[in-house]
């Protein structure tokens, strides 16, 4: 199924300066939110980014849609350098091709706009002047995301819709320009179970109908299992493991991935999970040491890990990469 390479990310890095209270202090600290992240997304693929809060998965997503500018590294869309795009027609073209779906359906829709105005906004901004065309494209998109008949939804306000319906509106807004690549940032984490499955199925369906690829960001590995073709696990700004979803989840190799997967509760009372072998708490990646980020919590780390730099990703099996010295 994987087609040609659509998105290539190499060495992507984003540091945020930490504000210090002491004035006159010149020494600045940085949060290494995303640190040297490399991956590719193929055409028609759903690439998952999983990890705990603060691991840098949302920052990575926002870098890809140019909400943030990276500190260094490169992003290529279809071979074209994305970071060089600054303004004008090329930026507009990029916006048309790359879109984002946000986590919170209650905060991602402007409460003072009607559903029509929300979904038509990208069209208006991209210069679709004809009102008739905008109306038709919005109605068409609303029916594609399951808000049918569209006429009954177009002129309502977000607060008149349920959480699931709002998230469908947000999906329609992202899809109305016909993007090739969509960053979906936890699109179902705020939704109830029975509603969530519907939105997940819609996203899978739209991949086929609209021929779109996703970067699917989630903290929920069970959701990732159902949504993603390949999966990258992030820990404190670093990708620690990448591979085919089922392989990563059923046979995790990195000690962090193993702990993460062992910690996920299973909706089966007869199932006994493996113990979670991980020490301590997650810390913020402020000026991290040069050795492996996971070492302070690692159950298998030793002195050689401490004297070596952070491990790079190694291909352990075909298409399955792990960043660990001990494997």
């Amino acid at each position: 199924m994987p087609g040609r390479e659509l998105l290539g990310v190499e060495g992507l890095t984003k540091y945020f300066p930490v504000k210090k209270r002491l004035f006159l202090s010149r020494a600045r600290s940085f949060i290494h939110a995303v640190d040297d992240v490399t991956f590719t997304v193929h055409e028609g693929e759903i690439f998952g980014l999983v990890g705990e809060s603060g691991c840098g998965k949302t920052t990575t997503g926002k870098l890809l849609v140019k909400l943030y500018e990276p500190t260094c590294g490169s992003i290529h869309l279809d071979g074209q350098d994305v970071i060089q795009i600054r303004r004008g027609a090329r930026l507009r073209e990029f916006r048309r091709r790359v879109q984002m779906i946000f986590q919170d359906p209650y905060e991602s829709l402007n409460p003072r706009m009607t559903i029509f105005d929300i979904v038509a906004e990208p069209l208006a901004v991209q210069g679709v002047r004809s009102l008739v065309e905008r109306e038709e494209r919005v109605a068409d998109m609303l029916s594609k995301v399951g808000l049918t008949p569209p006429e009954t939804f177009m002129f309502r306000y977000p607060h008149e819709l349920s959480g699931g319906q709002r998230q469908r509106v947000a999906i329609a807004r992202a899809m109305v320009l016909g993007p090739e690549f969509v960053v979906a940032d936890e699109p179902t984490s705020m939704l109830d179970v029975s509603i969530r499955a519907g939105v997940m199925k819609l996203l899978l369906e739209l991949r086929e109908v609209l021929n779109v690829s996703y970067l699917y960001i989630t903290h929920d590995l069970a959701v990732a299992r159902y949504m993603c073709d390949r999966l990258a696990v992030m820990y404190l700004g670093k990708v620690v493991e990448v591979g085919p979803t089922e392989e990563v989840i059923q046979e995790p190799l990195h000690p962090y991935t193993r702990a993460l997967i062992a910690a996920v509760p299973v909706p089966d009372p007869t199932y006994r999970r493996e113990p979670v072998e991980i020490k301590g708490d997650i810390s913020a990646p402020i000026d991290p040491p040069s050795y492996c980020r996971f070492l302070p919590r690692c159950p298998i780390g030793d002195v050689t890990c401490e004297s070596s730099p952070h491990p790079s990703l190694k291909e352990v099996r075909a298409g399955h990469f792990v960043a660990c010295h001990r494997l």
Binding site: Q103, E107, P122, V125, Q126, R173, A174
Partner: peptide
Amino acid sequence: KPYIEAAKVAG
């Protein structure tokens, strides 16, 4: 608010 980010992403 995220809708401001959404508007930026829309262009």
